[in-house]
Design a protein around this nucleic acid. Sequence first.
DNA 1: TCTTAACTTCACAAATTTGTGAAATCAATG
DNA 2: CATTGATTTCACAAATTTGTGAAGTTAAGA
Lengths: 168, 168
Amino acid sequence: MSEAAEAGGAGRDPESVSKFVEGFAAQLVEAGMQRMPARVFAALLSSDSGSLTSAELGECLQVSPAAVSGAVRYLSQQHMVSREREPGSRRERYRVHSNQWYEALTNREAILKRWESALREGVASLGADTPAGRRMSETLAFFEFVDGEITAMMERWRVHREKVFGSP
Amino acid sequence: MSEAAEAGGAGRDPESVSKFVEGFAAQLVEAGMQRMPARVFAALLSSDSGSLTSAELGECLQVSPAAVSGAVRYLSQQHMVSREREPGSRRERYRVHSNQWYEALTNREAILKRWESALREGVASLGADTPAGRRMSETLAFFEFVDGEITAMMERWRVHREKVFGSP
DNA sequence: TCTTAACTTCACAAATTTGTGAAATCAATG
DNA sequence: CATTGATTTCACAAATTTGTGAAGTTAAGA
């Protein structure tokens, strides 16, 4: 069996793996992610090693190196994959950790923060004593609450996770 | 003062209100929402009554009735605005409730559910005993955990909210 | 029932986004 | 330091998305 076959995570039926990749990517797209990053992420997630090279990704998704490059740049900015230079070769590997989702969630928190500051401006410019200002204050309070809760939730997840899956 | 002036939420400086609307909409867009729905939602959020007619929205955002129509259709599908027929007139009003964000969050939960089922398929097709399968199982477990936590969080929010803002 | 204001749908034009090939850049090895 | 395999950047073409005007529906009031 060629190494290319291993690449896509094809210890199993490559057909159904690809079906998963495309299906899951489509869900991510629906949630707002760009298509190519979504496909790359899904491909990595379904690989046995959890890491693929640029060439393997291109092969597996039938896209150009340029497309892979753009996608992994985006994904690593979002902390959804990490890049590692293989010491022996001049290839680069892109990797997902199963807990990388925490980082993604953390990133959503950054979005929340920006919403919050936009709302604060809104309250300021509309006046805290106007009906609109009050509505926005409440919205703001909601987001602040959610923020705090998410932090606490992640703590609980780590505990839960350790109980179920063991340490790291 | 004309009713048109009231419409945009212009008991205050229309300039800075519009600046908020566009700024907040831009944040929503960055989080994945389409532009027009985002602008409409922001406009409603910044109106004193919390509700505007189609014509008022078009005026305030400088867009055609068709664009408003498309945007509010999307927003009501997402449960982010409710539509109400004014009994006296043949106009329709679109309304945000300050707690409408819960609905939006609930909608995100629906997305999570779809992710979960996609992951379950993935585990099935890759095999639960493969490395990739195990990674996906853990991811799946994470989402299931988050799901449950969000429900609990909303309960706590209702309590918190009542303490700070009073009942409804 | 007829009229008419208001909203919706549809086809299309404009603008934006997406992915490619080719050239440029980078870095590991001889 | 030259070579060469690998990735990134860039300009462009294709595809998709977005918003408009105009025609089509719907329902309130005469």
